[in-house]
Computed example of a mutant assay.
Amino acid sequence: MQSSVQAQQENIVLDTVDNADGLEQLVVVCVGLDAPIQRHLEDLQTRSRLYRGLTRAQLLAIVVNEKVLGGWLEFLGMVTFSESSDEALAEKESVQSIQKAAAKVHQEALQTQTVEESHAETHDAGAEGDDNDFLDEFLDKPMPVWDTSGNTMSQPTALLFNPFSSADEVPIAMFSMRWNERNKGTERLFRDVAELLRGRCIRILAVDAQAPDFGAVTLRYLHVLKAKRGVMLAVCTADYGEMTTDPFSTNIQLTYALDHHIEILPLKVEEIYPPQPPSGPDHPVDKHRLGELLIWTAMPPDKFYLDCCLKTKDQIADEIEAALRDRKAEARNIFPRLRGSGLYCLI
């Protein structure tokens, strides 16, 4: 409890988030806590700072930050608000109700303060009165909700984090691809596509072929697709589906998808389609052309596919997102009219 002299003063405490752990104040201003999303451990630190800063406040948290491109708070550039809307009025009433409840708890804490914590009973009464006067003034003052309809700040065009987009709207998906020297350019392209889709809150799985636990991660992702009724995005290079000695090859992934009724969405990335995996008498593993048979089973002539040839990463991400959302609609027995849409092709 502050002394009466301290209670009569308005103080601003400037400190780091780390030093504020475990402490709370009525009003907290969080300054400069945002940072670009890097898909790395630094992201956890940034999110932790934001969370810990915001939760230090009992009544009001204010966030002050420059516009960080690709940051966690960039989505706020999309927010518009008007005090005249019904939702705004309801939100304002809710906030005031919460403020009053918090103030009541604070006042009860002041009233239960023991005489031993202060030098004199009258001294305590004066301090309590000062705090109560502050709370009354705080609650009586109307809380302004700024109308942002005239905000001239340019809205972001592509967000790495967008809480307004629900991940439940589209199924989880996994990229299945030959990660080899022949397909390096295609690999880079689709890793960029994966990042774009994740920025739209679409759950995309893509294995890092250089990771030491490549096999374990692949197996876990396949189990996730099965459990979540996800979609396998088959990046159909010409050698996709080739039988190799790798226990987690695209041939094994495709077989797993067929055995467990996982939906397969082929992505055409070369002129050769369907894929023609190497096989034949001279092949070290597939001498009986089982890879070709697997491709024709998984990708028959009447199966839809997404044509990604000669398209940018943004165009591919747009079409994959649309296809996944159409798949969600189809699950609700609303069959999308895809023929002639430009998204899919028939062979």
Rank of each mutant, 00 (worst) to 15 (best):
Ser97Gln: 03
Val95Arg: 02
Phe75Asn: 15
Glu91Gln: 08
Gly71Ala: 14
Ala88Pro: 00
Leu69Arg: 02
Ser97Cys: 11
Lys67Ile: 15
Lys67Ala: 14
Glu74Leu: 07
Lys104Cys: 12
Ala102Glu: 14
Lys100Asn: 04
Val68Tyr: 02
Glu93Asp: 15
Leu76Val: 05
Leu69Phe: 06
Glu93Thr: 12
Ser85His: 09
Ser82Pro: 08
Lys104Asn: 09
Ile98His: 10
Ser85Tyr: 03
Glu91Gly: 06
Trp72Ala: 12
Phe75Thr: 11
Val95Gly: 03
Gly71Ser: 12
Val105Met: 05
Ser82His: 04
Phe81Asn: 07
Ser84Val: 13
Lys67Phe: 15
Ala103Asn: 06
Leu69Pro: 06
Val68Glu: 06
Lys104Val: 15
Val95Gln: 04
Lys104Asp: 15
Val105Tyr: 02
Ser97Glu: 07
Ala102His: 08
Val79Lys: 00
Ile98Gln: 02
Ser85Ile: 04
Leu73Thr: 07
Gly70Thr: 10
Ala88Ile: 05
Lys100Ser: 05
Val79Arg: 11
Ala101Trp: 00
Phe75Ser: 14
Gly77Asp: 09
Glu74His: 04
Ala101Pro: 00
Val105Gln: 02
Ser94Arg: 05
Gln99Ser: 15
Phe75Lys: 08
Ala90Asp: 08
Ala101Ile: 07
Ala101Arg: 09
Glu91Asp: 08
Ile98Asp: 08
Leu89Thr: 05
Glu93Gly: 03
Gly71Arg: 01
Lys104Met: 12
Ser94Met: 12
Met78Pro: 06
Ala102Leu: 04
Gly70Val: 09
Leu89Trp: 00
Ser94Asp: 14
Gln96Leu: 15
Thr80Met: 13
